[in-house]
Design a protein around this nucleic acid. Structure first.
Lengths: 213, 213
DNA sequence: TGTACATCAGTGAACGCGCGTTCACTGATGTAC
DNA sequence: TGTACATCAGTGAACGCGCGTTCACTGATGTAC
């Protein structure tokens, strides 16, 4: 063997990483196996000793994303502490950050690939669903308890974050994209009861800031 | 000529319509010119007498969407009266309706194609931006006046609608997709001050319903 | 009205190309003796 | 330690295929006389 016994998993991970970045940037259809393998420093022929098909790799890319407990690659460089009580606003701020907006390659797959996934098979959509459920759970746990439907609010906040980023990436005008990210961030923080005015004014004005009348 | 003089525009429109439906369903890359032309009842060879390239057609499909002042094809069958004062909640309800969720072919392109557009050239993204600005404007005009940043709220509502639908389409579990649409609808209506509790209780509880504490 | 011609929308064969996938082979490594 | 062999990760040529695009041609229509 050209490499130590434990080497294949390392190579496999390199292929998945290469694929993740290329898929994030160009989508599923526009990326060839040759490009993916080249990104991992290999030739295309060896691909099928690691994966059954291109679709298989796609599902694995999405699943790997979920496997990472800290969603590290979701917003590379932006620290999110899952054990913190402040995790909700942290997630919102990181998700809608300029960093996450610009870093397409390391972006959350829910932002980069949602419509590709919607057109894909069960395994890809199942992986996507798991990622989404995780995000909603994290947000929900961070909402303070009361009688309101916290789960629905958490789903709404997640949708603003994902939708805002997806739309921002599709616009031409960078200024509008920035404005949209800011708007979504303030609305989302407000919905969660995490906005600055909420903290300073205690429980009443935070809702008023998001609801215009 | 095999057809009356004014026939070419009709045929061109048929090609655009065929392309719109196929792009909505399968994305830009996965649809061939042969399929598009077949959908319009023609063979592939004639395509280039109507369009310069496949990308050209793509931009035109998106532009046509904007051209339609009533966004008819956005939610085929769901009536939205743009002159009504209630247009905001009408748009939200139509956008997140089960009908719009299921009707992929006639779906709003911001739901079906946002990531395809994000990877495309300037013309496609410019068309997308115009559609988005229109949606935000319609929502903004429907928000009642007060000192709050109505534009930011309108952008947030639009992002919930688009994001909620994009995510719902990518999930495997239909029940979760339905729950998500409902959650986004209630959060969005609440943000706009259009929820039922807002109407009945007058100005205070509508905010509380969306903000969990 | 009838004939000859010009127009041009649409056809379908052909082009080069890159794709996903297969597979016989290479050659570096580990193992047996 | 040295030799012969087995293993197998990775290579690269080859496969059939469908793509976007081009273009010589067809044949139905409109026009001129």
């Amino acid at each position: 063997m050209p490499y130590p016994a434990g080497h294949r998993p390392v190579v496999k991970k390199a292929i998945v990483e290469s694929a993740r970045k290329l898929f994030n940037r160009h989508g599923f259809e526009s990326v060839s196996i040759q490009q993916i393998m080249a990104g991992a420093g290999l030739t295309h022929g060896g691909f099928y000793s690691y994966f059954h098909s291109k679709s298989d790799l796609y599902a694995e890319v999405l699943n790997c994303f979920f496997t990472d407990p800290n969603w590290k690659s979701c917003w590379e460089g932006v620290k999110v502490d899952l054990s913190s009580a402040d995790v909700g606003p942290q997630v919102v701020r990181a998700y809608l950050s300029r960093q996450h907006f610009e870093n397409v390659e390391d972006s959350c797959p829910m932002v980069a690939l949602p419509t590709d996934v919607a057109r894909s098979g069960k395994s890809a959509r199942s992986a996507f669903e798991t990622v989404f459920r995780s995000m909603v759970n994290v947000l929900e746990r961070s909402l303070t308890q009361n009688g309101c439907p916290r789960r629905a609010t958490a789903q709404g906040i997640a949708s603003i974050c994902i939708g805002g980023m997806v739309v921002a990436r599709a616009l031409v005008d960078p200024a509008l994209a920035g404005e949209l990210r800011d708007a979504c961030m303030s609305v989302a923080l407000d919905l969660g009861g995490w906005s600055k005015s909420a903290k300073s004014k205690n429980g009443k004005s935070k809702a008023a800031a998001a609801s215009p009348r």
